[in-house]
Amino acid sequence: MPKVLGSLATHREQVRERVFAALRAQLYDRGFDALTLSGVAAAAGVGRTAMYNHFPDRQSLLVAFVEDEAARYVAELDAALAAATTPAGRLAAFARLQLRRLAEFHLPPGQALAGALDPQAYRRIAAHADPIGDRLTTILRDGAADGSFVDDDPAVLAALVAAALSTRKVVDVAPDGLEAAVGTAVRAVLRAVGADVHN
Rank of each mutant, 00 (worst) to 15 (best):
R168L: 07
F149A: 04
D172P: 04
D146V: 02
G147V: 03
D151N: 13
I139H: 04
A144C: 03
V156I: 15
K169L: 14
A163C: 11
A145C: 12
A159W: 07
D152V: 11
L178S: 11
A162G: 14
A163I: 09
L160N: 03
D153Y: 00
L165F: 03
D151Y: 07
D146I: 07
L140H: 02
F149V: 06
D151E: 08
R168M: 06
D152I: 06
V173L: 08
D172H: 12
V161R: 06
D146T: 06
L157V: 08
V150C: 08
G143N: 09
R141M: 08
R141W: 05
V150N: 10
A155N: 11
R168D: 13
P154D: 09
A162C: 05
D172G: 07
V170F: 04
K169I: 08
R141V: 14
A163K: 12
S148R: 11
S148D: 12
S148K: 10
V156N: 04
A158H: 00
D142I: 02
G147H: 05
P175C: 11
A164I: 01
G177V: 00
A155P: 00
D152F: 10
D176L: 09
L160T: 12
V150I: 13
D151V: 00
D153L: 01
A159L: 13
D153C: 07
F149C: 01
D172L: 11
V150A: 11
D151W: 00
P175Q: 06
A163Y: 12
P175V: 06
D153N: 12
S148V: 08
A164S: 06
V173D: 02
V150E: 11
A144P: 03
L165S: 06
L157F: 01
L157R: 10
A158W: 02
A162K: 15
V170G: 07
D151R: 10
I139N: 07
L165Y: 07
D146W: 04
G147N: 04
L140C: 05
A144I: 13
V156F: 06
A145Q: 12
R141N: 12
A162D: 15
I139M: 10
A158N: 00
L165C: 10
A162S: 15
L157D: 11
D151L: 03
A163L: 14
A159G: 09
L178R: 10
D151P: 02
A159Q: 14
A162H: 15
S166R: 12
P154T: 03
S148E: 12
D152H: 13
V150K: 09
D172T: 12
D153H: 04
T167L: 07
L157W: 03
L178H: 08
L160Y: 10
V150S: 05
T167D: 15
A145T: 14
P154V: 07
V171Q: 01
A174C: 02
D153W: 02
A158C: 04
A158T: 08
L165M: 06
T167H: 14
A164Q: 14
A162Y: 14
D151Q: 04
D176I: 01
L178G: 02
D152L: 11
S148W: 11
R141G: 13
A155W: 13
A174F: 00
K169P: 00
L178Q: 11
A155V: 15
P154H: 10
